[in-house]
Design a protein around this nucleic acid. Structure first.
Lengths: 223, 223
DNA sequence: TAGATTGTTAATCGATTAACAATC
DNA sequence: TAGATTGTTAATCGATTAACAATC
């Protein structure tokens, strides 16, 4: 059996293809060629075709790709044809932001509960989703099938909670805490490190600033 | 002049080095070798040395790296030795979450104002940061030096606001809207696409599920 | 059929890893 | 000095791009 492992670079690009195809679908575009898509997405047509052919031949020679079909196929590849039960751990602003983001439901991600250590928040609910005390987490996981836990809590608590979650059978963690976990390899962790994203921005800003300064310096010297 | 362009892969790793070194610093670790760091970070020692030597020789043969010094040097490379004035556009949950995240200040990012189209929010303030009406944005940018605008608003409004910001001189955009912008190349955009991150997680979960199913299938056949 | 565009192989490019001389 | 570990060159590996035959 062809056990083809798809490279991480390809997988990182798939959601972006999915987004662009979804946008085209909304604009009622029926077909698109790799060339046309490449111009919109600012990648090479070659890369698009190469990427897609990791999963199968979705196009047709002389025609291109059917937008609706390709969108749906990439959705399947990304596992968006399934439903996921999600819990949010940490009812701070970020946790609440995720709970409020109804758009995730459209993709099949349903927030079932929010947990927090703060007893004052207990009983509150966001879009009908109840905030519960952390103490109830283990029991909740016994009686509810949960696919993904989003961790929006302080770094100090994150590691402990993550290993508890792994112990209690959670297989998917969407981690917003600025730390890496050491978990059994059957647990999949996807990190969102906001601080690191911001640092990449400041890196690029300061590189450009330096370039600007050097340019000005050169102009001065030429006088 | 050696105009060495640093590869994107290297830059993506820098904030993670910075985080690990910061953690070591908190634990009062004075020195670390590339080998030891590589074990903690689960990358090769070779990669660490190769990455760092893009920017200079920060280590010492036979000794390793001084944690405090290396941390500080990477901070400078990332532009964290400077201060950045930030505005947040979109006072929804995510915008408020960012405004409340005091930790950014520790890195030199200061939120100066929050803007929203909703007049009801105007006058409210978060951690002393005032929420203002979008109409005031242009004027605000004339009288305040703003380095970075965080865009936490709906996709429908994002593109227009982004091009306004570019027009009004903003050079750094931290974009949380699920869309790409087409801006002059002197504007640096760093994207945080949460939905895409979640899709990567569901991809990996569904690949593992498929593997699991195949395994069970094989076991059945062997009987 | 002629034209267009895919799927796929081959060539190129870049990034990672290995190896080791330099040196603290 | 001997041992350790860097900085850096060379080898390997993987990803991207180019090219084109296949085919709609």
């Amino acid at each position: 059996m062809e056990k083809k492992v798809i490279s991480k670079a390809v997988i990182n690009r798939l959601p972006r293809y999915y987004r662009y195809l979804g946008d085209l679908l909304e604009k009622d575009v029926v077909r698109i060629s790799s060339k046309e898509l490449s111009e919109r997405m600012k990648v090479t047509a070659s890369q698009i075709r190469q990427d897609l052919n990791n999963f199968g031949g979705f196009g047709q020679q002389g025609y291109g790709y059917n937008v609706e079909y390709l969108h749906s196929e990439i959705g399947k590849i990304l596992g968006l044809d399934k439903k996921y039960n999600v819990i949010i751990i940490g009812a701070g602003n970020l946790g609440q932001a995720l709970a409020n983001y109804a758009d995730f439901e459209r993709r099949g991600f349903f927030v079932k509960a929010i947990f927090d250590v703060n007893p004052r928040l207990v009983g509150m609910s966001i879009r009908g989703i109840e905030i519960r005390l952390m103490d109830e987490l283990e029991e909740f996981l016994k009686t509810n099938e949960v696919d993904i836990a989003a961790l929006t809590l302080p770094k100090t608590q994150a590691a402990q909670v993550a290993s508890d979650l792994a112990k209690w059978g959670i297989k998917g963690i969407w981690n917003f805490a600025p730390t890496d976990f050491n978990l059994p390899k059957d647990v999949t962790v996807e990190n969102v490190h906001l601080a690191e994203s911001l640092m990449k921005l400041s890196y690029r800003l300061s590189v450009k600033e330096k370039e600007q300064q050097e340019k000005e310096q050169q102009e001065k010297e030429q006088q």
